[in-house]
Write a protein that binds this DNA or RNA. Structure first.
Length: 457
RNA sequence: GGAAAGAUGGCGGAGUGGUCGAUCGCGGCGGUCUUGAAAACCGUUGACCCGCAAGGGUUCGGGGGUUCGAAUCCCUCUCUUUCCGCCA
């Protein structure tokens, strides 16, 4: 959450930022937070005053008792009654104002950075970069900046020719991944329904093997990039959910084991970032770079329709997450490095991708700046989100009480960042669909050492 | 599931009603010594809130209570550890 200090320091900028995020009644809410803060401060001043007098009297009673002057002590005691009453009154005033303020602050989203595009929906996202392989039809899609048009043109990308080594499937004969999964016995959706339910696929044979290869590949790449591998629990307590902001906002999106009051994690971000909850680290330790592979669980309540087909939207999926904790001065650089890392993965997998800078209205509640990575899926002819890489500025850190001690020994809120590197199902979908040939599904070179073969047949 | 013990500052660990925000050790920081480093020695070192400051308040797992006064006593919740049982 935002701190009251941030709000007091630059009220107008905060309001403007919240409006950019399409947060309703931003001005009114900010004004009332400030008003409550006034109440809080005045209550504290009154309370501090009374407490001080109380402390003085108590000490003098102690001194009198020590000297054996019981009668005098009793007289002073008599004076404390009213003060004691006052302290209680002011304390409850203060506590009430604090709670009111906190509750209000919790409802206020993070403020976007200035470069975040205006707009309310995904249509307003800015495609800052596209990349991937050279299209067979000759359209140059490499590294075009600010190319919103590509979203439309993408549909006409032809399949890579694989250097004429193989016989590519003709565009009109491309199968969606759920058909390919059946054809090559990679994933059994029906069995998943039988043993768990829709959205819990069963990977079999080469499908399971490819899954494992991707996990290993992503973890190796992250490790090479300097991220420390973490293997956290896949359930967390409520405190952790509040720390990273899933609670209370997205309560209904997490599986909750009520008997033990534990939540199945929707992303490794939750356990990994929470490792640093209530910690003060030394600036020299920053940036802290961690990566983790976990299963992720999402109830996806309320999302039905055709985009849930196959691997597109699941209740359980595998994801490798990268997480950083950094100083405010260096966090932008960190963000950049994370984007470069994610992009390098997509390049190595030879997938066509685009990078979107999310608009104010499309960003998550807690993010200050967020880039989505999408890969183009040839058979479905649509973009699939495979990574979301965000800087949360101090927003999460404030909730987490994640701080660092700077060179001057001052304790400051850290910045937290995280990104998917990468989420498996849609990568798998794109790999299957884009690489289908008459001779099987081809495995990109970077993945072959992990998969142990150049194709699925 | 049964039984017991415990939760104190970055860490370890004292403290069982009155200058205790808390002895001490480690770690950190500054200094002396040294060509430099180590060692030794000296000093310093919690967080949060209010205040321009001086200063004040809060804080010993969370919440409530007793008391003029609570880290210390009582109630309650949460968590941890150990032993027994079960078990990958």
């Amino acid at each position: 959450m935002l701190t009251i200090r941030q709000i007091l320091a630059d009220k107008e900028a905060i309001i403007a930022g919240l409006e950019k995020k399409h947060f309703n009644n931003a001005r009114d809410i900010i004004e009332s937070v400030i008003a409550i803060d006034q109440q809080r401060k005045s209550a504290q001043q009154k309370k501090d005053n009374a407490s001080q007098q109380m402390n003085v009297l108590s000490k003098s009673i102690g001194a009198l008792m020590a000297k054996g002057e019981r009668e005098q002590a009793e007289q002073v005691k008599a004076q404390t009654a009213q003060l004691k009453e006052d302290v209680r009154t002011y304390e409850s005033e203060m506590a009430q104002a604090e709670e009111e303020q906190r509750n209000l602050l919790l409802t206020i989203p993070n403020v976007p950075y200035s470069i975040v595009p205006d707009g309310a929906t995904a249509d307003d996202n800015l495609a800052v970069k596209t990349g991937g392989w050279q299209a067979g039809n000759g359209i140059d899609i490499l590294c075009q900046d600010n190319d919103k048009a590509f979203a439309i043109e993408g549909a006409s990308i032809a399949l890579r020719d694989w250097k004429d080594e193989y016989n590519p499937t003709r565009q009109e004969e491309l199968l969606p991944h759920w058909e390919l999964a059946k054809k090559y016995h990679l994933i059994d959706f029906d069995l998943g329904v039988k043993i768990a339910g829709a959205g819990f696929p069963v990977y079999t044979g080469q499908g399971a093997h490819l899954q494992r290869a991707l996990i290993q590949f992503f973890l190796d790449e992250a490790t090479k990039a300097g991220y420390t591998e973490i293997m956290p629990p896949t359930v967390v307590n409520a405190a952790s959910g509040y720390g990273t902001g899933q609670l209370p906002d997205k309560e209904g999106q997490m599986y909750h084991a009520e008997v033990d009051d534990l939540y199945l994690i929707p992303t490794a971000e939750v356990p990994v970032t929470n490792l640093y909850r209530d910690e003060i680290v030394d600036e020299k330790q920053l940036p802290i770079k961690m990566c983790a592979y976990t299963e992720c669980f999402r109830r996806e309540a309320g999302s039905y329709g055709k985009d849930v087909r196959g691997l597109n939207r699941l209740h359980e999926f595998s994801k490798i997450e990268i997480v950083r904790i950094d100083t405010p001065e260096h966090s932008a650089q960190s963000h950049r490095e994370m984007l470069d890392h994610v992009e390098s993965l997509l390049k190595k997998l030879e997938l066509p991708y685009r990078i979107l800078r999310l608009s104010g209205g499309d960003m998550s509640f807690t993010a200050a700046l967020c880039y989505d990575f999408e890969v183009y899926s040839l058979a479905q002819q649509r973009w699939l989100e495979v990574s979301s890489t965000s800087n949360f500025d101090t927003y999460q850190a404030n909730r987490l009480h994640c701080r660092y001690r700077d060179a001057e020994k001052k304790v400051q809120l850290a910045h937290t960042l995280n990104g998917s590197a990468l989420a498996l199902p849609r990568i798998m979908a794109a790999l299957l669909e884009n690489n289908q040939t008459q001779d099987g599904i081809l495995i990109p070179a970077a993945l072959r050492p992990y998969f142990g073969s150049d194709r699925i047949q």
